[in-house]
Design a protein around this nucleic acid. Structure first.
Lengths: 220, 220, 220, 220
DNA sequence: AATGAATGAGACTTCATTCAT
DNA sequence: CATGAATGAAGTCTCATTCAT
């Protein structure tokens, strides 16, 4: 959880007093992620964030204007990171629709993206009833882009399939719901549930839907 | 109080001065649900809760000792309500495993349980990193009970099935993940996504897994 | 400390619903003494007092009108009790001034008066800067009466003494100061200091001042 | 703040925005002493303390963490101040035991120490039944040090005395009790009783005990 | 007489934000 | 740019007092 700041208490060399704007911002966003993951949104104070970042209290308002803005930028950072991950995976994957879909699934459960820490932050934001719409606005185009892409891939796979299959749109919908549901499972049962199991469960689902394209994973 | 002279604050008829303990508690729990649904946990203050309940500020600590306790009792209420719903549905359903499983699914998307308001509260609690463990403790036995029951039903259905099927444990796992994922979908896209669609998506999933027992729903 | 209410929690027979006014009042005053002794004035709430008394919350205001009034009556009760004690001792004592003075001293350290519990209450009131004058008013005539009496006795003793002695007024003053100081000592060092030692210290003082009349106590 | 436009709240010149840590702490301790002296512990609120200090409400928790801690630091300050006073007096005094003892007594009634304000605070703390032990712990070593020193001086004086005297330990005990008792007298009768009289009464006591070393003060 | 639920003022504390240094 | 002391609004909780039952 605290990999970023674990050794931060005795700061001998307090970083160059003048760091580039972007480095400072990222430092604070990382600290925010750490704090939200550990203490939740309610327990994340400016004081805590700056302590985690090894910086002084006043600096957040300098770089982010307000706490609300810091939170929004944090969410955007996570969304972009995720976006980059699956987009790159999609592009780097083999040419088949099956491989490309698989790459997106894998990206979803990649350690960089699917860490307990980051999932915790995602759900912290999801839980914020009061600001849900604001947060939604910031990231919906990214979610939409992924959905469209997956839908398209499912359509291709369905066309390639021998027999009749579940309608592609519904597979894409179920896939998105599964992503969210499995992440929540990871958050809820950190001791017994793992990224690998979650990934395999998606595989199980896809093998059920497209038996010609996906093998049933071996589990348990 | 000078509400008699103030035309600006329309208030419901001020409840009987002395209500039974349980009535008051439920009144406050309802108000808490309303407040969390609308303003999130961070935006839910004692002042707001009591305003929603049409009661005075001090009353919460009288009936619940602390805000934390009020929240816990609210969560327990929701969990029990849900539990009652699917347990009754399970008992009232036809004798076949298929019907019983279907009844549990339906209970999950029953309007009483699966309202935007209540889902919002569930996810508000899920998002609370700082207190996740406490909340988990309060409800895990109920979740476990439902999982066990569904697993058992899936096993029965698998035995009845003609060909080979996805392992029951994995179906049960996917089902739970789908419940969570679809609820989140309902929360996120309140305009376009509906209880019925979500319910149908589970049907789609089950029809894919157990084609002998479940028909593919007609959608879109 | 809790002798009065030690077995009070499970109250089977909740006292006759209608008790004489005086009995109820005394019950509440006793509870007030117990509460102040244990929790201080700041920690003494109406709720605590009535709990200690085994009565319901609302009853204090019925019998005492306000908390402030309850406190005043409590102080008056203690002052009167003390007054009765030394007055009776004074009257019952032998005829000599020496015996009468001794009787007053003894009354001061009598277990009924000089319990840790009651001393604690006295000093709780003494510490109340904001209301010192009010409390003072309630009891000063009693203190004055005792001072005058002791002064008179010291004068008699001084007249009887062989040589020159400390002026009686100063002995009386020192005596009063000693009472207060020794009580505070008892409060401060409950483990090592005792009523008997305190009593003996007054004896030491008097033996020093009036060697013809008082023997030096044997101590340590 | 709108003090510029408000003629109703006369404020002293708002201290430099950033003061040294120690200056601010002392400022708040002084304000606490003033408030306790005037309104008692129960009447001393954070709001009142900061108002007296001419600072804003939130500052106390910044410098002292909690009200309880502010109170403890206030008590420690008083104890240290007293300690410094008599220790210096003891060291600066003549070489004889008699002079050194006298110096300690004088320190006890020095205006800096023995002001009505400060005595009031002492007795406010003494009266706090609920926290007596905590407060005791903070200062007992200082009290012990003074007692030991005075005992030692009494022993020296007793050795120098011509005839038999009251046992030194008892004189030391009586002295301590007298200090406390006379301070309470000063608190109780502020109009008629004075520091000088109190001081003289100790002199009277010592003259009675050690007639070879102390002269009987002239009084009344 | 007695009860105890209800009220609401006011206490302590937290913390986003400001700003002198 | 950076610091962190300072501010004050707002939150939770306590509790004397009231009053329907």
């Amino acid at each position: 959880m605290n990999e970023t700041f674990s050794a931060s208490k005795p700061r001998r060399k307090p970083a160059r007093r003048t760091e580039s704007r972007e480095v400072r911002r990222q430092q604070l966003i990382d600290a925010t992620i750490n704090s939200i993951a550990r203490h939740g949104i309610g327990g994340t104070t400016m004081s805590r964030v700056t302590e985690y970042a090894g910086l002084s209290l006043g600096i957040v308002n300098f770089h982010f204007e307000s706490k609300q803005n810091l939170f929004e930028e944090t969410l955007i950072f996570l969304a972009r990171e995720h976006h980059e991950q699956w987009l790159k995976a999609y592009r780097d994957a083999g040419l088949s629709a099956r491989d490309k879909l698989m790459a997106i699934v894998d990206a979803h459960f990649h350690p960089r993206i699917c860490s307990r820490k980051k999932i915790s932050v995602w759900y912290a934001f999801y839980g914020e009833a009061g600001r849900r719409k604001i947060y939604r606005k910031l990231i919906e185009h990214i979610d939409q882009e992924r959905f469209d892409l997956q839908l398209q891939l499912c359509q291709q796979i369905a066309e390639e399939a021998a027999g009749p299959t579940t309608p592609p749109r519904q597979v894409a919908n179920l896939l998105e719901a599964l992503y969210d549901g499995l992440w929540l499972e990871l958050l809820t049962y950190p001791e017994s549930y793992t990224r690998e199991k979650a990934r395999a469960h998606v595989g199980t689902f896809l093998a059920g839907v497209y038996p010609d394209h996906f093998d049933m994973p071996i589990l348990d």
